[in-house]
Design a protein around this nucleic acid. Structure first.
Lengths: 72, 72
DNA sequence: CCACATTTGTCCGTATGTATC
DNA sequence: AGATACATACGGACAAATGTG
């Protein structure tokens, strides 16, 4: 099996949490530093995952506040 | 005017080159190191731009070969 | 108003792995 | 074997926005 990079694993995990309703529209995601600890990685793969999810239109980052699930 | 980050500027530039036909389906983009020099930035913003464009389904990276415009 | 901590945003340099030519 | 090129990740740095006291 191909090894899945951390940032894809994280993006998939968050995406599926959104799909399952565990994360609902308007919800705030854990902070980046919390996600780092949770997945045992540095900031980079977390931010890459968030960039992907933002590009997909699933979440929206707000400087100083957090990253939120898009409300639609 | 809000300052546009480098990675967005680069993504927009490449996206518009694809839209205008200057870059056609199947074409190979300049290498990352060439794009670095062209835009006067480090590798990071170039790769972020490419991650965005890949997520948008506009380009496709191939290890050892290059990044290509999607043929569809 | 001010100071501080928190949080996201952006970028740099470096290192390593993997695939291709 | 070597050069080239993309893929991934680490650590560090600073800016900008927010919230709290």
């Amino acid at each position: 099996m191909p090894r899945m990079p951390d940032y894809q694993r994280i993006a998939n995990d968050i995406r599926s949490k959104i799909g399952s309703g565990e994360l609902k529209p308007g919800d705030r995601l854990p902070s980046i530093s919390q996600l780092q600890k949770q997945y045992g990685v540095s900031a980079q793969p977390v931010k890459s995952a968030l960039l992907v999810l933002q590009t997909e239109g699933l979440v929206e980052g707000h400087q100083g506040r957090g990253v939120f699930v898009i409300d639609r």
